[in-house]
């Protein structure tokens, strides 16, 4: 399985990843790079917007929780974590992965963390889509008298 990911792609993947999937992959990587906090993890919210009629002018729908942090590795690379929910540890892992993905460890981090995460995300999506597809209505028309 291959994954083509730019920075936007991997940060988006990390933001959506369940902690139950990210944490074991991160730990299995067995890396603990030295870093300094540029912004310690903080929990906050973003206002989610929708569009009137799905396509028109924006309106405010309600907020969702997110946690963010920024850190700098000893080699100077900066990593940002922006993740859904209120898990500061998850934000830290996401920022570390983001930083490592910009350095020479990128291939290994991608293979051992991002590829499995992307696979799990795709599988979960496919499973729901398949269950939804099974509930699709097949209409049929009854033969009516006048056709005889």
């Amino acid at each position: 399985m291959t994954v083509e990911l730019d920075r936007r792609g991997w940060m988006s993947l990390l933001a959506k990843a369940p902690m139950a999937e990210l944490a074991p992959l991160w730990r299995a990587l067995n890396m603990s790079p030295e870093f300094q906090w540029l912004r310690a993890p903080e929990v906050g919210a973003t206002m989610v917007r929708g569009r009137m009629g799905g396509t028109g002018a924006p309106f405010n729908l309600g907020e969702m929780t997110i946690t963010r942090c920024s850190l700098q590795l000893d080699d100077g690379v900066v990593g940002h974590g922006y993740v859904q929910g209120r898990d500061k540890e998850k934000a830290r892992m996401a920022a570390l992965v983001d930083a490592l993905m910009q350095g020479e460890m990128a291939d290994r981090v991608c293979r051992d963390v991002l590829v499995p995460l992307a696979g799990a995300f795709r599988d979960a999506k496919a499973e729901r889509a398949a269950k939804a597809a099974a509930t699709k209505v097949d209409f049929f028309t009854m033969v009516r008298g006048e056709d005889k």
Partner: peptide, 23 residues
């Protein structure tokens, strides 16, 4: 609880046309 959260910003308007529909 919501009032205690700092607001980091707002989202782009969500694209419901790209929704993965369960229903």
């Amino acid at each position: 609880y919501r009032t205690t959260l700092p607001r980091f910003g707002h989202s782009e308007p969500v694209d419901t046309g790209a929704m993965a529909c369960d229903r």
